[in-house]
């Protein structure tokens, strides 16, 4: 479904290379965890996949369902089913959460040549997904992420994911800054979306999140490429030993 091969990328303004030949294949239904030390390029990978234009891809390619992904605008990627849950979800003052969700749903449907969602269908969809994430009417009426706690922002991002129903979900440190209760709610929200057609890339620094969202594969990102891949046991090993081995390898 998502195929990353030999991806090289650098920060556009300063030219420092962050990704140095990263390759990864993600198939429908799979959950891949990407772990790694700070500065390994985890968030860079997430941003490049979503289409943030601060990065310049110098080599390699990314394909989604066989089509070149890197030539598409972020909104075109979204319409094709790619979703990024942000490490720091952005505040949009003056735009109600509900309005924003509906605008996003309809923008994607329009891009796919579908008709707009009816208001009753939309309300039903949001109500169902919101209750799972313990998001009340009050949060839906408020401006997007404005005055939200860290946990509320992360839950709100997962709500967007649940409502937009993407096929490949990338979670960039969705566990950072969360207490154990918020972490559990976010994990429940993600687990509810797991399906044979949908894949996940979970980017995280700590193993903790993976206690709640069980990955099929664990990869260590270090020095701009996948340094090691394995099953869930690799996360436990990292938790015990740290990233010291990889830091040396990268240096």
């Amino acid at each position: 479904m998502l195929s990353i091969s030999n991806l090289h990328a650098r920060i556009a303004d300063e030219g420092r290379e962050i990704l140095k030949g990263l390759s990864l294949d993600v198939n429908p239904g799979e959950v891949h965890a990407i772990m790694g030390p700070n500065g390994a390029g985890k968030s860079t990978l997430a941003y490049i996949l979503a289409g943030k234009d601060d990065y310049e891809v110098t080599d390699g390619e990314v394909r989604l369902d066989g089509d070149d992904l890197l030539g598409l605008e972020p909104n075109e990627r979204a319409a094709r089913g790619l979703f990024l849950a942000f490490q720091y979800p952005v505040e949009i003052p003056g735009v109600a959460n509900m309005t924003f969700l509906k605008t996003a749903v309809n923008a994607q449907r329009k891009a796919r040549g579908e008709t707009e969602i009816s208001t009753p269908d939309f309300l039903r969809l949001v109500r169902e997904k919101a209750s799972l994430l313990k998001i009340g009417q009050e949060m839906l009426r408020r401006a997007v992420n404005v005055g939200f706690s860290g946990g509320e922002k992360k839950r709100n991002d997962i709500l967007q994911m649940a409502v937009l129903q993407p096929k490949i979900c990338i979670l960039d440190e969705s566990d950072s800054g969360l207490d154990i209760d918020a972490l559990r709610i976010v994990a429940d929200g993600v687990n509810a979306l797991r399906s044979p057609e949908r894949a996940f890339i979970i980017i995280t620094h700590y193993q903790r999140l993976l206690d709640y969202i069980k990955p099929d594969f664990v990869h260590v990102l270090s020095g701009g490429r996948i340094a090691r891949s394995g099953g869930p046991e690799l996360a436990l090993e990292l938790e015990a030993k740290g990233y010291a081995d990889f830091n040396e390898a990268a240096a």
Binding site: N75, A78, E91, P93, V95, T103, A111, Q160, L164
Partner: peptide
């Protein structure tokens, strides 16, 4: 700000719509 524009685009809004939403929000206050 480019960050909110990217955030909105990543949710499916084409750039003109993302900018329009942010302009409405700026004036809305």
């Amino acid at each position: 700000d480019e960050m909110p524009v990217f955030y909105l685009m990543s949710r499916g809004l084409p750039r003109p719509e993302a900018e329009a939403l942010l302009i409405r929000s700026f004036v809305g206050e």
